Simulated scan of single mutants.
Amino acid sequence: MKINCIIIDDEKLARELLIEFLEPYTDIEIVAECSNGKDAVEKINELKPQLIFLDVQMPGMDGFDVLENIDHRPFVIFTTAYDQYAIKAFDKSAIDYLLKPLDEERFKIAVQRASERIGAEENNVEELISSLKGSIEGGAKFSTHLFVQKSEKLLNIEVKDIIHLEASGDYTVLTTKADQFLSSSGIGKLEERLDPEVFIRIHRSSIINLNFLKEIEKHFNGGLIVKMENGKSFPVSRTYAKQIRKKVV
């Protein structure tokens, strides 16, 4: 398991020392460094690290201001020269509170705590997904619900509400009337869980829900275009055109 982390400190030497201390930890990847609170908020929300090393006193926005302004919730190890903020830090669910100058042995303990907490949370999420799938789907051959991650939440969406699915690299974009969701499963894997009487593969990169199909248009070159009720159109590849033609009466 790779742990992404961001180092946030207005002192360059402090950031360099943290980088040096983290070198032996091949499972921890530093994805960004920030020298002020404003940049830290942007990077945390953008990169969504599992772990941050956060200084308390910084010009403008301090470490606690950063935590108040972020949408993503990483695990936090505070690094500061001031001990009077420790109680407040642990009120913010900090994993640890390291005083400068940093002691390497004490640093190792903090990182070990962080690794254990992050690992436990990852395992709990996987177990929860598995449990939820089993309880809702029971012995059904096709899924009636899917659990997708959005921000820090696992959302339960009904399969019947999915209008279409589109491949995006190794991921899949699921579109409903209300929202879009990004699944970490490939479109082929998801296809196996969908009822083929309702969901038809029309292209290697797209699947549509027939219940939301508005019309089929014949293209000048003999190809087909499907138009969905939400206004989205998809070309039908020759490989999958027979799936559509089977529905024509």
Rank of each mutant, 00 (worst) to 15 (best):
M1L: 09
C5R: 00
C5D: 00
D9G: 03
D9T: 02
E11Y: 07
E11V: 09
L13A: 12
R15D: 02
L17M: 11
L18H: 06
E20Q: 14
P24Q: 09
T26G: 07
D27L: 09
D27R: 10
I28M: 10
I30M: 09
E33A: 08
S35P: 00
N36I: 08
G37M: 11
G37N: 11
K38D: 14
V41S: 11
E42N: 13
E42W: 03
K43C: 12
K43S: 15
N45C: 13
K48F: 12
P49Q: 12
P49F: 13
P49W: 13
Q50Y: 15
I52M: 10
F53G: 01
L54N: 07
P59R: 14
G60W: 09
M61A: 06
V66A: 08
V66T: 08
L67F: 09
I70N: 06
I70W: 05
P74H: 08
P74I: 07
P74T: 10
F75N: 08
I77M: 08
T80V: 06
Y82C: 01
D83H: 10
D83S: 14
Q84I: 06
I87Y: 13
K88Y: 01
A89R: 01
D91E: 15
K92A: 15
D96M: 02
Y97D: 05
L99I: 12
L99R: 03
K108V: 02
I109D: 08
R113A: 02
R113T: 01
A114D: 03
S115W: 04
E116V: 11
N124C: 05
V125P: 00
E127Q: 14
E127K: 15
L128R: 11
S130A: 14
S130H: 15
S131T: 13
I136N: 06
E137P: 00
G138N: 10
K141M: 14
H145Y: 15
H145T: 07
L146M: 14
V148M: 04
Q149M: 11
K150I: 10
L154V: 10
L154N: 01
L155M: 11
I157F: 00
E158N: 13
D161R: 04
D170K: 15
V173Q: 11
V173W: 01
L174C: 04
T176C: 05
K177C: 03
A178C: 01
Q180I: 14
F181D: 00
S183T: 04
S183E: 06
S185L: 15
G188C: 07
K189Q: 12
K189H: 11
L190H: 05
E191I: 01
D195I: 02
P196D: 05
E197D: 13
V198M: 09
I202Y: 07
R204P: 05
S205R: 08
I208K: 02
I216Y: 00
E217H: 08
L224D: 05
V226Q: 06
E229R: 13
K232M: 15
K232T: 14
P235Q: 12
P235F: 03
Q243R: 15
Q243P: 00
K246W: 04
K247F: 09
V248R: 11
V248I: 15
